[in-house]
Nucleic acid binder design. Structure first.
Length: 464
DNA sequence: AAGAAGTGCAACCGCGTATAT
DNA sequence: CATATACGCGGTTGCACTTCT
């Protein structure tokens, strides 16, 4: 709250400052009004940047990082406060569908809003909607995604008669083949990758990275924390998510078990919930996986998920190992066919290190997927991601709301903000954002090989 | 009315990247 | 080229406030 800056509760608390810079104990915690005033004055005089100098020159007992954050999120002019408008929410939804958890980029499209604000918004309101069983993405976003994914959905990856849940983990049913990539494409920037390069599943987890910076989409990984089902108690989850087990982070499993989701949830009108397991990621970015325990539905195993990605990965691998090693009887029941057993064996080899090839790579199920690299799969790399990402960057730069790069739009010599054409009044929001979004008709086709997330930029006026 | 649980938000932290030295 | 520094981003945490029981 801004109450923090009111100085209401928290006065300078030396003990609250943890670090020490140059002998000066740097304060942490809520900002006081006095601190705000100092920072505002300093920035007004000296401009932004060189944040570490703030502490040195102004006597403010805050690290530069903290100063930058405070300025950007609370003190800079033209910040919009208060709840998001309906249009802003819609923009956020669209942007999130396209960008994923790229809060800064999203903020660039929402004048006066900060990445932190958007992030908090998403992590709270959207999560709440999910918990309440309310759909998240507007129909148009869904339509857009569906349309862009049409090639895959025309030939539905989701079989009319899904494989029984018992086949969850290693089914080699050819039906899942396109499902993975296409389903990913729906709402997650990972689609940008999946349509061009090796599917994440084709690369061992250790070859993937938690974060790739701006060189590529910050996509959730199949084994990453972000890809896991919501930590929310199943009782409070929408029905469509309550049954998703952590095992379903395996796309093979996921696509099969996601079938019911599709079949049932797409009946909703107006708003459409995230369709698939992987689409959960965007909805519950940071807190979609927490310290709570997630009951397995497929097995009686439980995962005490840690907050660490690595720990989670280890756990998952461990659980998988435990499962494949210790539950042969269940395996027999679950993986009845020779093909499935073969895949299971591959997976065991992979886990044991006897095989460098991750499972799921070989086999006909991937053969005709254009989204995949050859099954050698040893290319976790990001060239396509870079391409697409850079394209997004370029296009983003062309957006009408993109702030001027050199001089902060809110800053002028006298401290009075300099309004750009795009900024930033309540009225502007009511006008420009709708223009932005309403003029973004649903893309019908993409013939440039783009993936849904990236191609949808074309929908924005001012880009093309 | 009181405690518990949930929610929302500001701030912090760690990491990656860019730039300077 | 290597190292240091600054900056930016996304995830996470802490806490005040609100709602529920």
């Amino acid at each position: 709250m801004v109450a923090n800056s009111s100085g209401a509760g928290v006065e300078d608390r030396p003990e609250n400052g943890g670090s020490d810079a140059g002998g000066v104990a740097l304060k942490k915690g809520p900002w006081t009004a006095a601190e705000d005033a100092i920072l505002v004055e300093y920035v007004t005089k000296h401009g932004e940047g060189n944040w570490n100098a703030v502490q040195k020159n102004s006597g403010l007992a805050r690290c530069g990082k903290s100063c930058r954050l405070r300025w950007a999120n609370h003190l800079r002019p033209n910040l919009k406060k208060g709840s998001f408008s309906a249009e802003e929410e819609r923009v956020i939804l669209e942007l999130h569908a396209k960008l994923g958890n790229k809060w800064a980029r999203m903020a660039a499209q929402l004048p006066g809003r900060t990445d932190n604000e958007i992030k908090n918004y998403w992590n709270t309101r959207i999560k709440r909607r999910l918990r309440q069983g309310l759909p998240v993405y507007p129909q148009e976003v869904q339509n857009q995604s569906n349309t862009v994914n049409q090639p895959n959905f025309q030939n539905p990856p989701y079989p009319q008669s899904p494989c029984p849940p018992s086949q969850t983990l290693f089914s080699s049913s050819p039906q899942f083949k396109p499902a993975f990539s296409s389903s990913l494409s729906l709402f997650d920037p990972i689609t940008t990758l999946s349509a061009h390069q090796t599917s994440p599943i084709l690369t061992p987890p250790y070859q993937r990275y938690k974060r790739s910076g701006d060189t590529g989409p910050d996509f959730p990984l199949p084994f990453s924390q972000a890809s896991l089902p919501s930590p929310l108690p199943s009782s409070s989850l929408p029905n469509q998510f309550s049954h998703i087990s952590p095992l379903q982070l395996n796309p093979v499993t996921f696509c099969q078990n996601s079938l019911p989701i599709l079949q049932t949830q797409f009946k909703f009108d107006q708003m459409v919930p995230p369709v698939l397991d992987f689409s959960i990621n965007p909805e519950l970015p940071s807190s979609q996986f927490s310290k709570k325990t997630h009951p397995y539905t497929a097995d009686n195993m439980k995962i005490n998920s840690s907050s660490s990605n690595c720990g989670l990965l280890d756990e998952l691998i461990g659980q998988a190992q435990a499962m494949v090693c210790n539950d042969s009887s269940r395996r027999q029941a679950s993986f009845g066919s020779q093909e499935e057993k073969h895949m299971l064996n591959d997976f065991e080899l992979f886990l044991s290190g006897s095989s460098t090839n991750p499972p799921f790579v070989s086999g006909p199920q991937w053969a005709d997927s254009t989204s995949l690299q050859p099954s050698t799969g040893e290319k976790p790399k990001q060239e396509p991601a870079d391409d697409v990402n850079s394209m997004n960057e370029d296009l983003s730069d062309m957006l009408i709301f993109h702030p001027a790069p050199n001089i902060p739009e809110w800053y002028s010599d006298n401290g009075v903000s300099i309004k750009q054409s795009s900024s930033i009044t309540e009225d502007d929001i009511g006008l420009d954002i709708p223009q932005l979004t309403s003029s973004s008709p649903v893309a019908t086709t993409t013939d440039h090989g783009w993936t849904p997330g990236s191609s949808s930029w074309d929908n924005f006026s001012g880009i093309c």
